[in-house]
């Protein structure tokens, strides 16, 4: 019987500014750089991912927001030019990705078995959202690892935050079961920003870092409080204050990726590794890793 496992989970936010600042060949616009601390954080995450050598990356993105259930990319190959509808001046990215359809189907079936509405997206002309693409580029720009793309059902917004996150918890548990069943060595990517209030006007030079700072002191303080709990592995406390964090900092984790990822990992009480933090148009972004492989061999983690 197959016995897959989750190797690690990453909090992997998706501001397209990071791709723009990096100037990869896939992206049309050119920049003078910008947002270096966050991009350097992703460099560390890339190195860690390289060591993990996963079979598949699963990404849950708030920019594929679905109304009727939780959806999974279900086409073996998807490609095209992704132009960000919000930041078209920064992100016009040619992409091609391979989908692990077998795992996606297993996730979908397991989600249905848990009472969730779940669907496979089979249309080959489907435009993959920029959140998925940005997170995948920032963590693995080689695009050589198959992907499972998961939509963010709008339940935390349409229903209550609590009800919505309960659905994400079930989705995470279903994801775990599917990974185990299919024998995959998987890495999970929660494509979420933390505090999410942001500026409403863009500087003439978007990468002018003299204009970049937290949107508010309160949002920054909330981010630091939350990150510190994650760094210390105080996950019970982190999830206890999560609804308040969401309400007061308009945290994007409301959309469910963070809860999905932790539910899939079994809510490990382990310290997250902060690769870096920075703001993008005022929002708070942390690149963090929970390496379940390292935890198996780390006495310090085991003691938490």
């Amino acid at each position: 019987m197959a016995n897959g496992e989750i190797l690690a989970g990453f909090l992997a936010p998706h501001p397209p500014h990071l791709v723009y600042g990096e100037n990869p060949p896939q992206n049309e616009p050119e920049s003078e750089g910008g947002w270096e601390p966050l991009r350097w954080a992703y460099e560390h995450a890339r190195e860690s991912l390289d060591r993990l050598k996963p079979d598949v990356l699963l990404v849950h993105s708030p920019h594929w927001m679905t109304q009727l259930g939780h959806h999974f990319l279900g086409v073996p190959k998807l490609s095209g030019k992704s132009v960000d509808p919000i930041f078209p001046n920064l992100f016009r990215y040619s992409f091609g990705l391979d989908v692990d359809v077998e795992l996606a189907e297993a996730c979908c079936e397991k989600a249905k078995a848990k009472g969730l509405v779940a669907k496979m997206m089979r249309n080959p002309k489907f435009r993959v959202d920029y959140g998925t693409i940005t997170t995948l580029h920032m963590i693995r720009p080689q695009w050589d690892i198959p992907v499972v793309g998961i939509s963010a059902n709008n339940s935390p917004y349409y229903l209550t935050t609590k009800e919505g996150l309960q659905e994400m918890d079930l989705l995470g548990k279903a994801t775990h079961e599917a990974i185990k069943q299919t024998g995959r060595r998987a890495v999970l990517l929660a494509s979420n920003t933390l505090s999410h209030l942001h500026f409403s006007e863009e500087p003439a030079l978007p990468e002018d870092m003299s204009r970049e700072h937290p949107f508010s002191h309160e949002g920054y303080r909330w981010d630091m409080r939350f990150i510190e709990l994650l760094r210390q592995g105080k996950m019970d406390e982190a999830f206890e204050i999560l609804p308040q964090f969401i309400d007061e900092a308009h945290a994007e984790v409301k959309s469910g990726a963070f809860t999905w990822m932790f539910a899939a990992m079994g809510y490990p009480k382990m310290a997250g590794k902060l690769h870096g933090y920075g703001t993008v148009i005022g929002t708070g972004n942390a690149v963090m890793e929970w390496n379940l492989q390292e935890a198996l061999t780390s006495p310090a983690q085991a003691a938490l």
Partner: peptide, 29 residues
Amino acid sequence: WIAVLDELWQTRQRVSGVHVDENWYEYGD
């Protein structure tokens, strides 16, 4: 057509293509 920074206006003379709705993709292009 959602924007969050500035007010956006389409200024390309001709815009054509195929769009697949992110919710109702099974009904066609």
